[in-house]
Amino acid sequence: MIAIVDYGAGNLNSVKKAFDYLGSEVVVTGQPELVAAADKIVLPGVGHFSSLRTLNSTGLRQPLLQSASAGKPFLGICLGMQWLFEGSEECTEIAGAEIFPGKCRQFPSSVKSPHVGWNSLEIQEGSLLLRGVAQDSFVYYTHSFHAPMVSAMTGASEYGLRFAGAVEQDNIFGVQFHPEKSGDVGLSILKNFCEV
């Protein structure tokens, strides 16, 4: 069972719908005990970094961190990926999971923000999550802050600068883009996660 973590930030329907389409058993839940009991975890999220505050107030932070360190496959999408880092300049008082080093920053003023649309993804070899995805495939992004390039980066995109589009370390996966909105490419990435 995959738990899609509902912490009140935006709309989780499209993530659930994509997993349903792939035939995976998923539950959308905000209950810490259900999250703790799940085999795999998806942490979605859109909007402002401050919405992650709810993870603390609802008692979700601990089961998420424990699941991640216990080796459970964990996929952060968009804001959910940013949470895997130390934090974000968008809201400095909220701590991330600190699984990956560095803070998320705003795009330079030379480009329009938010970064919205289909951008190409430069893929590093050896990624489990991006297995079988063609080099420079297009994925759909919508965000104003971006994660830094770290050694765990498995996919990069360019928008005013190069930034981490995907990260991966053992059981922890993160994608800044929306696989559930990235057509067949996105569905194949979610399928890879189901099969990890």
Partner: peptide, 14 residues
């Protein structure tokens, strides 16, 4: 203000 209200709950991207 309707824009701010919807953006506040669902995010500007929505």
């Amino acid at each position: 203000k309707l824009i701010s209200k919807i953006a506040g709950r669902f995010g500007s991207q929505a």
